[in-house]
Design a protein around this nucleic acid. Structure first.
Lengths: 243, 243
DNA sequence: TCAGCCAAGTGGTCCGACCACTACGCCCGG
DNA sequence: CCGGGCGTAGTGGTCGGACCACTTGGCTGA
């Protein structure tokens, strides 16, 4: 006799995660909508609140849910930018060969995004890009330069018109990630070159020339990529970017 | 005087996550290494085990940690494929415009990956690709076709030599994701066309022609992309792929 | 020697209490 | 009647401690 009920595949928490995912996938929960309370959900699935909390935490990390202390749990709009955290963390923790692979992915996406931007960018956006370029060249503070560099590329990614791609690139360019690489990179006077590359990208955007933009962006990222690849080869001391 | 320590930024769990991330980033924990027990870690940071478990769960979802029941918690090798789960989940839950954006990203990466594969693929890998292509054409069972289709592209991505990119593509092609799109797509007799496209990709690979491979792959994904975009435009009933 | 058992240790689950914060309505003064 | 301020109920966040399920490795006994 054993009547039975979907015994248990895997852990209880896993089941809870699938359950909530299903609720969203099937449209039982709309983006922005509030979920039942943790206590309710736990009771409903017949599991403890602790386990349910872990399930919620998992979905929160994935950017699917958002918990507001004292208010409730809500389904995010899934509007990109929500999944970028995971990407950023992975990028920050990667090293060696993995880092180069990540940079290669960035080169591919960034060059395409820049090409798209060249064709679609508005005057306002172009002005914003130029502003960051100028600010970057007007200071010597590495911190500030890095900040404007990030903004420069972010602005371009946004102009490409694909939010999801912009979010991925954002993750691939997270602050600590780039800071790590830059430290060593800049010491080699690759500074002027970086400025030249940025200027080239800006020129291509201004000229609305997708092909030139793609080439400039690819070269820009590829430059760093090459340097990193070399570092991994036969470095002995000093460079800590890859190792 | 104040000994003191950064009281608490944000939630306790968040602090725990940062702490563990830092341990890995600073090399205090090597990939594959076993972490202290949950109880230890919790005590060490002065938080409860529940909170520590949530932190661990978060990092597990991100693919940074791996928990083995009865054995311990380990740092993953961060060898790609670990972050693909998140990507897959997001892809599964996305709809409408977001879905198109995701497909666009896939088109960009897939075409580049296929081009790289054309230049680097080995005889063995090429044979494997051909096998899946044949299997795909030899059956009418949608399930089986889908399975071989996925394997076909996976094999190519692997041949491109960038594991990280392959992992991302894997996530972007997750089973339920594609199944959802295919259902409607195939009903329009896009079947023969898909076969033709796959054959074209295979030919380009065999000829070791990167440009042809890139074009074939881009066209292949772009085809589906276009269809989906059209669906979103003015669809009234039936098609459930996007809405 | 080796197979099998046993026990310690670890992650997985559950419970129930309390804290921190938000939201909303009730009450009181204007 | 109106509005602001204070309560309070409700929700997520944290805690601690008990017990379960599984792995591992050593020990026992054939």
């Amino acid at each position: 006799m054993d009547e039975e009920e979907v015994p248990q595949k895997g852990t209880v928490t896993q089941r809870a995660i699938e359950e909530i995912k299903a609720m969203i996938a099937e449209g039982r929960l709309e983006p922005g909508e509030r979920l039942p309370t943790e206590r309710d959900l736990a009771a409903r699935l017949g599991i403890s609140r602790s386990s349910m909390r872990e399930a919620i935490r998992a979905l929160t990390v994935m950017g699917v849910l958002e918990a507001r202390h004292g208010s409730g749990i809500y389904v995010t709009a899934l509007e990109a930018g929500d999944l970028l955290e995971t990407f950023g963390v992975v990028a920050d923790l990667s090293r060696g060969p993995r880092l180069v692979e990540l940079l290669e992915v960035r080169r591919i996406l960034e060059s395409t995004a820049t090409a798209l931007a060249a064709a679609r960018i508005t005057e306002d956006q172009l002005a914003a890009v130029g502003k960051h370029l100028a600010a970057m060249n007007a200071t010597d503070d590495p911190e500030e330069i890095l900040a404007h560099d990030l903004a420069f590329h972010r602005e371009i990614a946004a102009a490409a018109g694909n939010e999801t791609m912009a979010a991925i690139l954002e993750g691939l360019s997270s602050r600590t990630f780039r800071a790590r690489v830059w430290r060593g990179y800049q010491e080699e006077g690759a500074f002027a070159r970086t400025r030249r590359e940025h200027a080239a990208i800006h020129r291509a955007l201004t000229a609305r020339d997708p092909e030139a933009a793609r080439a400039a962006a690819a070269a820009h990222v590829g430059e760093v990529e090459e340097w990193l690849r070399a570092q991994l080869g036969g470095q002995s001391g000093g460079g800590q970017a890859g190792e």
